Amino acid sequence: MDTTGILRRLVAFDTTSRRSNLDLVHWAADYLEHAGARVRLTSDVSGEKANILATIGRDEPGGIVLSGHTDVVPVDDQDWASDPFVLASRDGRLHGRGAVDMKGFVAACLAAVPGWRARELRRPIHLALSYDEEIGCLGVPLLITDMLAHGPLPALAIIGEPTQMQIGLSHRGFYGYRSVFHGRAAHSSDPRLGASAIEPAAAFIAVLAALGGGDGGTTINIGRIEGGSAINIIPERCEVVWEFRPPDEAAAHAVLAVVEGLATGLAAGVGVETVSLANVPPLSCVPDDPAVAVARGLGGLWPPIAMPFGTEAGFFQQAGIPALVCGPGSIAQAHQPNEWIALAELDAADRFLARVGDWAAEEL
């Protein structure tokens, strides 16, 4: 089955993050096993979501990981010209939810497996497909932990998010939190009897906003604030949902240190509880990393780019696996109605992945 045919099958699975991805997982796992890959599945606690790790070639260190995600964003309230879960071809473009983000890359990888399997590979090729990337890369930490527990360390990971096949070396991290402030309710005619939860929350927001900067620095967003019950009641609860995106781990630690200081400096009668909603580390890969030379040899385009969006690459980097981003299609089409990927981009991915087989078969 060619890349377009596989993409047609993948798009037909509605793997919106709020739904199970198991129908796609079972289809892909069956395809991979019949093609001769060794397949491992890891599941979330509900059993409704699963990762796939498929290996082609020897169980040796120094292989390559090709990483993608199986989930897609919703189509709710979007005006599509055709059924978003039926791949449609128009003017050299393939339209469908997930076509570019990122079932196109996944389809190209699956289509390449029989060719890889037919070769005498001296380095393994690992295909890593994770769940719930779109809501915080929830599946990939489990996948990486399982991969390292049951096999040798790969030499590099390439995440196939859409970069039009340019090599992406850096992106900011994504950290999301919910901070709930607790005060003490009282009649507003005598504020001394209560403790407002909204006032310290407002001060917290002002400090957070001041931490954000431009020009590639840390960005801050206050996504939601909710608190209070009536105009004449001192509010006893206020919830703030917020996120920040740092360029590196040092910047992340700096923001969290300020937040910790604010939590310990609250007025009497006020407390705050902060819980993590998302934790996606930044990516920072230097141009002279050996992984970059491999990606360029495979056909990744130069010069490199810094990406405005996050990926699972930082998780691989934290695990000691050099990582970068390089995949077909443009991020400009992602999450949009009538999402599409150009056939020419899929052709470029097919050529790139054929060279992955060449690299894995080279004499060591």
Rank of each mutant, 00 (worst) to 15 (best):
F85N: 01
I56M: 05
V86G: 04
R97K: 11
G57E: 09
R93P: 00
H69R: 11
V75P: 04
F85I: 09
F105D: 06
Q78A: 00
F85K: 06
D77T: 02
G68F: 04
P74E: 06
L94Y: 06
D91Y: 05
G57N: 02
D101C: 13
V72I: 14
D101S: 04
I64M: 14
G62F: 01
G104A: 10
H69M: 10
M102D: 10
I56F: 05
P84A: 13
W80R: 11
F105A: 15
H69P: 06
D83P: 11
G96A: 07
D71G: 09
D101R: 12
D79M: 10
A81G: 13
I64A: 11
M102C: 11
L94E: 04
M102I: 00
G104T: 08
R93K: 07
F85A: 12
A81V: 07
D91W: 08
R97D: 02
V75M: 05
V65T: 09
Q78E: 15
A88W: 00
Q78Y: 07
F85E: 08
D83F: 12
V100Y: 02
D76P: 06
G68R: 07
P74W: 02
R90S: 07
G63K: 02
S67H: 09
D79N: 13
R58P: 14
V75I: 14
A88Y: 04
V106S: 11
R90A: 12
P74A: 05
V65N: 03
P61R: 10
S82W: 14
F105M: 09
V72P: 05
D83G: 11
K103F: 03
I56E: 06
V100R: 03
G63M: 08
P61G: 04
S67T: 09
S89T: 11
P61K: 07
A99Y: 04
I56D: 10
F85D: 07
